[in-house]
């Protein structure tokens, strides 16, 4: 890999020598800094202030964080829900993505392409999760309620997206349905590129079934893909928010049953304009995302 970095000398001459390289990099670096890097730094700084977008921010020390963990019970609910989402849907969708990719890997090409499209389609269909709203509609006209009632399993319609007993579970299912994205494609491509002769050699060496093949040959060959897949799944697992807001009300959901950190953040940020507090929430989210990446890389290695 060409990434091996030699000792750089940051002298003006070295920089000047590569002026063309920097000029090519510049447009992207500017948008990247303005809309990803600076916002993150900005959020960290503002999280120690009181800021309502109108007046100059006032420094408040650790106030926002103290309020988050000791006064704001709703935040703790959001934290709990987000962790449930992340811990369940993160690893599950990661394993599913790999498992599906592995299952369809040996199919004839045309069928494999068809299955790839089928599994990948929900993740790019963006807002098609609205269809779940009609399937699990609260009245007896909804597909699920109607069928369960007509089969005699239910007596009256269940409020799927309102009842705290069910809504979190359904959102998790919807999230899993949506989550076979870029990492799934990477896994398929990775599996396809494992050298077939390795399997033959392994068979000679006594690998007896496909599961042993998977463990001894396929997985070690795909380490880099697995790391990429993990990075892509992490942000998806922690940034559940649009779905809960659209399907079960997010920050308006009954007993905050499906409130996530993203919803809580939007509530304080774009609704109440308490930007300092919203920034503190986002900093917690950054830390969680970054820490889980570190953890996962450690496990996978």
């Amino acid at each position: 890999m060409a990434l091996k970095s030699k000792k750089y000398s940051y002298t003006p001459r070295a920089v000047k020598e590569y002026a063309v390289s920097y000029s090519m990099l510049l447009p992207f670096l500017i948008v990247f800094c303005v809309f990803t890097l600076i916002p993150i730094i900005c959020a960290v700084v503002l999280s120690f202030t009181n800021f309502n977008m109108l007046e100059v921010p006032t420094f408040t020390n650790w106030m926002n964080y103290r309020r988050l963990f000791f006064e704001d019970d709703v935040f703790l609910t959001a934290l709990k829900n987000t962790l449930i989402f992340a811990v369940l849907t993160g690893p599950l969708s990661y394993i599913f993505a790999f498992f599906f990719a592995w299952l369809i890997n040996e199919m004839p090409t045309k069928l494999r392409v068809f299955m790839t499209i089928l599994f990948y389609a929900p993740s790019v269909s963006g807002n098609a999760y609205f269809i779940w709203q009609y399937m699990f509609s609260n009245d007896s006209y909804g597909l699920v309620n109607g069928l369960l009632i007509s089969w005699g399993i239910l007596d009256e319609p269940v409020l799927w997206f309102t009842d705290p007993q069910y809504n979190l579970t359904i959102i998790i299912i919807v999230q899993l349905w949506l989550s076979l994205g870029v990492s799934f494609l990477a896994f398929i491509a990775g599996l396809q590129s494992v050298d077939a002769s390795q399997y033959e050699a392994a068979a000679v060496d006594g690998v007896k079934n496909r599961f042993q093949e998977l463990w001894y040959i396929t997985l070690p060959n795909m380490k880099d893909m697995l790391l990429f897949g993990a990075v892509m799944q992490i942000s998806g697992a922690f940034s559940v928010g649009d779905i809960t807001q659209a399907l079960s009300g997010g920050y308006n959901s009954v007993q905050y049953s499906t409130l996530t950190i993203i919803n809580h953040m939007t509530d304080y940020g774009t609704v109440r304009y308490e930007m300092g507090y919203a920034s503190a929430i986002s900093v917690i989210l950054f830390i969680m995302v970054y820490a889980s990446k570190k953890l996962i890389f450690k496990i996978l290695k």
């Binding site: 809309f35 916002p39 993150i40 959020a43 940034s239 928010g241 953040m265 774009t270 930007m275």
Partner: peptide, 14 residues
Amino acid sequence: MFTAAVTCIARYII
């Protein structure tokens, strides 16, 4: 990992 959803508030301020 720091997708639009994760950085949404910070981006909003900018």
